[in-house]
């Protein structure tokens, strides 16, 4: 080693793709699971969607890592997984029953009853409009970001918002007269 190179002593830690992926997903998992849970209205289905999404994310990890916003990329993969699973008629099958079939024992939380009513109504809103409402009003994303996640135009997001809100208000009995 020359004096020059010895002076420029750098510590290089080789991090494999797998380690990097694992570290990222471990940190992102709570928010991915929460988003999937709200979208699906069911924790188990939500976890299934997250599993599908992170598998896809891994398969395209180098592309994902190079994205401008990795969190947005991961969110897009998750929302696409949710919509795809609906298209595959997954929504018609309940592996272990829905809330109407089995009693759910909830932890004591404020306003659980209201939450269940809103959730039941939201589950009846068509999947794409549901995704728009959740991303805009639960995840607080701007219209442009929602359009990116759903790979559609901003005007589509706005129209889906209007349709989704109208459906939700109707289902909740809050229709304007």
């Amino acid at each position: 080693m020359t004096a020059d190179t010895a002076g420029a002593h750098l510590t290089v830690v080789a991090v494999s793709d797998d380690e990097e992926f694992t570290a990222y997903v471990t940190a992102a998992l709570p928010r991915l699971r929460r988003l999937a849970h709200v979208l699906c209205g069911d924790g188990h289905r939500g976890d299934d969607v997250v599993q599908i999404a992170i598998t896809r994310l891994y398969a395209h990890w180098r592309k994902a890592r190079a994205a401008d916003d990795l969190d947005a990329y991961a969110r897009t993969v998750l929302v696409r997984a949710f919509l795809n699973e609906h298209r595959r008629r997954w929504g018609l099958v309940r592996l272990v029953g829905g809330s109407g079939e089995l009693p759910q024992v909830e932890q004591a939380q404020p306003d659980v009853e209201t939450r269940e009513v809103v959730w039941a109504a939201l589950r009846r809103v068509p999947p794409k409009a549901r995704a728009v409402l959740v991303l805009r009003f639960v995840a607080d994303l701007p219209v442009a970001e929602v359009a990116r996640a759903l790979r559609c135009s901003e005007s589509t997001v706005k129209s889906q918002t209007a349709h989704g809100l109208a459906a939700l208000r109707r289902l909740l009995g809050k229709e304007e007269r």
Partner: peptide
């Protein structure tokens, strides 16, 4: 406000997600 009740939703700590 309509969707506010869902903001508090937290999934169960137990999960079937397997990295």
């Amino acid at each position: 406000d309509l969707l506010a009740p869902l903001r508090a939703v937290e999934p169960d700590e137990r999960t079937t997600v397997d990295i």
